[in-house]
Design a protein around this nucleic acid. Structure first.
Lengths: 243, 243
DNA sequence: TCACATTTGTCCGTATGTATC
DNA sequence: AGATACATACGGACAAATGTG
């Protein structure tokens, strides 16, 4: 007798909300639904797909967490297609760091090597608008410091702008993820503004080297800057763990 | 009159399931809950936290999607802490690629540069067990090909093993994400086994170079290998888009 | 300013599917 | 095979938030 068991695998093992979320995801992947488009309300979706409202809610929750939609409460609200998937990835990366799947030394050494690659790419692909954005970033950072405020946000943004200027989204995503961890570190430990001033100086020298097309100078300054940052973060971490 | 509006931001804007999931996440971050630990059932959680089952369900859904827990149905089942966050990140990375936030050329050029860094790190940190794992991988791939099967899984695994041998989890996560896209490509397009045989040859030469401590040779072979892979993927993609 | 409609958020009761013992 | 324990799913109801007229 021939074994025909394998022909009769279960047809439906998927949960209802999985089917619903997959259906909506496919509509997004195929371009039928685009960022800004509105989905029907939960009640209408439930009626149209002939499932309970609870299944719709869990499907929407999945899409919300995965960065495919935003949900607004109240009249005129509802689920809206909005692509925040890169932010979702960087959030998860931060979670991975918190779970100690990644150590600080791993993060900073990888960052140094990856950012050197990015900088090399920047020298190949940089445009006038990128230079302008970098200069503007430095200007804003200086203004904050002169007003005795912290320039943490601007200083983190500088490295994202560099990654953007490389014109490669992969580098941008990786840097976005790494800087999410750095931001978390600095904001929890309330770094003082004195060091920030120093940081802006490094940034300025890097931009000048890009303008002057001096790749070796830019790489050297970047390495110096990141090694100092690494030391500073390590000190902060030791203080936390030691106290 | 002084503006004191900013002093009175809403205290509670969080949704109940957000509070619940954050609470459980914190227990995981602080190490109170570890992989393998079981959470109470939905009903018990609802009773203990004094909220409805729906809120518990959506909180558990959030944790499941984010890679913090697995949920087993049936008696003796329930939510179990299980760290699958790296897989979650690589899944999202694949989604980002599908959303065309990343082009194939961006992916493959970034992969080449990052994998060169990884290979350099491997030369610094490689251990006997890594060599053994790489050799074993090649052996299994050859066996599959001799049996006229595809060695796709093994060939993808090879690059993950390389990243692992770099002893840096950041590189491992990035490579895991990139290879998720490559795997998706190849499995959808059913690459033939002839090319796979060629791939194993490249892998073998890389491992030999690692053993012989010839970094420049390893880097050259890797570059050749990845450029060929890039061309092959590009051809496959053009066929899909053109047909 | 205020009432109203819309939509998400939450809870409860109940029934069903599923896995374990 | 039957009992048990659990997630899954449905429907109804009300609360809370939010934009509109």
């Amino acid at each position: 007798m021939t074994d025909t068991n394998h022909l009769f695998v279960p047809i439906k093992n998927l949960r209802t909300f999985d089917e619903v979320s997959t259906k909506i995801k496919d509509l997004i992947f195929t371009g039928v639904l685009k960022p800004g488009d509105r989905l029907p309300s939960e009640v209408k979706l439930a009626q149209q797909l002939n499932v309970g409202r609870q299944s719709i809610r869990e499907a929407l929750r999945l899409l919300e967490i995965s960065g495919f939609i935003n949900i607004q409460r109240g009249g005129g609200g509802g689920p809206v297609i909005k692509d925040t998937i890169i932010k979702t990835i960087s959030d998860l990366f931060l979670d991975a760091f918190r779970l100690k799947k990644i150590s600080l030394i791993e993060l900073t050494t990888a960052r140094l090597e990856i950012e050197k690659i990015i900088l090399k790419q920047v020298f190949k692909n940089v445009e006038e608008s990128d230079i302008h954005a970098l200069k503007d970033n430095i200007k804003k950072a200086r203004q904050r410091i002169q007003g005795n405020e912290m320039a943490m946000a601007e200083n983190i943004q500088f490295h994202k702008l560099l990654a953007k200027a490389s014109k490669n989204h992969v580098y941008f995503m990786v840097m976005e993820s790494i800087m999410a961890v750095v931001r978390d570190f600095l904001s929890r430990l309330a770094a003082d503004i004195n060091t920030s001033s120093n940081v802006v100086g490094y940034h300025e020298r890097i931009v000048e080297a890009i303008i002057d097309q001096k790749e070796d100078v830019a790489l050297r300054v970047l390495e110096e800057h990141l090694l100092e940052t690494q030391n500073r973060l390590q000190t902060l971490m030791d203080q936390v763990n030691g106290g």
